[in-house]
């Protein structure tokens, strides 16, 4: 890793990173803001409405009816089940897309003509992305901490592993791409497929097997907060993420990038 490239990547992305912080805080705060209402007089009525929702919709927002009225269950459903991971995926796609943007904007050859191997340059960019991801998860975790006393720190480990998974996927896509928009489209397209698979899997018992194909089905933030970190899942995500980085470094090293 080259510290100058790492530092420059982090410095040039700092404004964008602040927006991700703001989005993470708003996401958690907006989710947590309804907690008082749920625990108040209207709580029972809201729970009744939620119970009427079809199963796929409950799955879409990872709503667990048995714990929905608890702080952990509610915030997991409102913030952690969709909004916060979406921010992490958006950051991963945007950060990796920055590499394609170098090609798209024609600034890549100044980078390629630096006296370092291509993989080292890309690794420095990946390192900067991973640090950004850590910061976003950290901010989200701190925001969560304001709402309840459950073991929120667990989400920092879980969220980082989830973010790493998507950062790896995004970099693997970016190493083959020439346009930032293509990276964003493909990453979100892949996420969309994973998301749909998890919903279809919840329709009935016959389609349940589809959840094995969906990375999104394995994302269960509420269970993490209540019972602990599923290290097997975390390791699997980290492994897939690292594999993605490996693919990205391999492709980046061998790729023709004509001036």
């Amino acid at each position: 890793m080259n510290l100058h490239v790492f530092g420059n990547a982090f410095r040039t992305g700092r404004v964008g990173l602040i927006w991700y912080f703001v989005a993470a805080i708003i996401g958690v705060a907006a989710g947590g803001a309804g907690l008082g209402t749920l625990q108040g007089a209207s709580g029972a009525a809201i729970t009744e409405v939620v119970k009427q929702l079809p199963a796929p919709l409950l799955t879409a927002f990872k709503i667990n009816l048995s714990s929905f009225t608890s702080p952990v269950g509610y915030i997991a459903a409102r913030s952690l089940s969709f909004f916060v991971p979406l921010i992490l995926i958006a950051f991963a796609a945007g950060n990796a897309g920055g590499v394609s943007q170098f090609i798209e904007r024609g600034t890549i050859h100044f980078e390629l003509s630096l006296p370092m191997s291509r993989w080292r340059w890309l690794l420095s960019r990946i390192g900067s992305g991973a640090l950004g991801l850590l910061c976003i998860v950290g901010v989200a975790t701190l925001a969560l901490y304001a709402f309840a006393s459950a073991e929120w720190w667990r989400y920092s480990v879980y969220g980082c592993a989830f973010g790493l998974l998507w950062l790896g996927i995004a970099y693997a896509v970016a190493a083959f791409s020439r346009e930032r928009s293509a990276v964003t489209t493909l990453v979100f397209g892949f996420f969309g497929v994973q998301y749909l698979l998890s919903i279809v899997a919840s329709i009935n018992a016959d389609t349940r097997w589809l959840e094995n194909l969906s990375l999104w089905s394995a994302y269960q933030p509420e269970a993490v907060l209540l019972t602990g970190i599923p290290w097997g899942t975390v390791l699997m995500w980290c492994a897939i993420g690292l594999l993605g980085f490996g693919v990205a470094l391999w492709q980046w090293q061998r790729r023709d990038l004509p001036a």
Partner: peptide, 8 residues
């Protein structure tokens, strides 16, 4: 580009 090693 060949001289610079941008392409193989």
């Amino acid at each position: 580009s060949t001289v610079m090693g941008f392409i193989r």
